[in-house]
């Protein structure tokens, strides 16, 4: 079946025969094999419970935080197996943005952006920190909006601004890959549009994997798309091709709104 899946040359990420089960035999992800394209947005779609979030979390090994989870198969980042790296190193290379904006409420905006370094106990000079904060906030287009309140806590920011702050927090590490778990599902349409524009800009320098419930979002901004169903990777293709001419009847059913 693999030869029908999208082939990618020089992939940033290779998922190889990955299976993840809760307990003994409840598979959330089953035998998934796929290569992820560099400097592109790859969308993962599927009805809820299809395993797309678990797959995403397996890529930075966040799924290991919860007990009773078994992982088989492998994932390679630039050819190196992520299961042989320490999670602390891995998660600097693979950043993550969550469903609901989650800036640290006890930290200022400045501290939030630099939080990755602080949490990791990195001793940076003030000038180095300033530079990272400024460039990260510039990248997400937030700097002008918060320039005067960098030392305030971020709770006065709008949902969209908070989410961009969270993206800036991830960018501070200059990761290779950014994982996004339905990053706009809690936002209003205007904020969503801003974030989508931002993602398209970001892919110039980063590889983005985007789990989304929102088919039109996947259609608008992703280059490639995966469709998952009941833990299996059903179809993986260029987004345009999948939306115009899905190969599998289950993909077609989902895209046409028959289930989901």
């Amino acid at each position: 079946m693999n030869e029908q899946m999208l082939q990618v040359s020089n992939p940033i990420l290779s998922i190889i025969d990955l299976s993840i089960s809760y307990g003994e035999d409840k598979y959330a992800v089953k035998d998934v094999t796929a290569d992820v394209k560099r400097n592109a947005i790859t969308a993962i779609m599927g009805p809820s419970g299809c395993g797309k979030s678990t797959l995403l979390r397996a890529i930075n090994r966040m799924h290991e935080l919860y007990p009773n989870i078994h992982t088989k198969g492998g994932i390679k980042l630039n050819g190196d197996s992520i299961y042989e790296m320490s999670t602390t190193k891995l998660r600097r290379k693979i950043g993550m943005v969550f469903q609901r904006p989650n800036p640290f409420p006890t930290m200022s905006i400045y501290e939030n952006v630099i939080a990755g370094y602080d949490l990791n106990g990195s001793k940076l000079k003030k000038s180095e920190k300033d530079e990272i904060v400024e460039s990260s906030l510039t990248d997400v287009g937030l700097l002008d909006e918060v320039r005067d309140s960098l030392n305030k806590k971020g709770n006065f920011l709008s949902g969209g601004q908070q989410q961009r702050l969270c993206i800036a927090r991830t960018l501070a590490f200059k990761p290779d890959v950014i994982l996004m778990d339905e990053p706009t599902s809690a936002l209003d349409p205007l904020s969503t549009a801003k974030i989508e524009d931002l993602l398209v800009e970001l892919k110039e320098h980063y590889s983005i994997i985007l789990v989304t419930h929102n088919m039109s979002q996947a259609a608008r901004i992703s280059d490639n798309a995966m469709f998952m169903y009941l833990g299996e990777l059903v179809e993986y293709d260029k987004t345009k091709k999948m939306f115009t001419n899905p190969r599998d009847s289950r993909t077609e059913g989902y895209l046409t709104g028959k289930f989901g």
Partner: peptide, 15 residues
């Protein structure tokens, strides 16, 4: 969400 945010930035459990 806050704990996960920190983990996703590479923090250890103790951190």
């Amino acid at each position: 969400e806050l704990k996960e945010a920190a983990y996703s930035l590479g923090a250890t459990r103790m951190e």
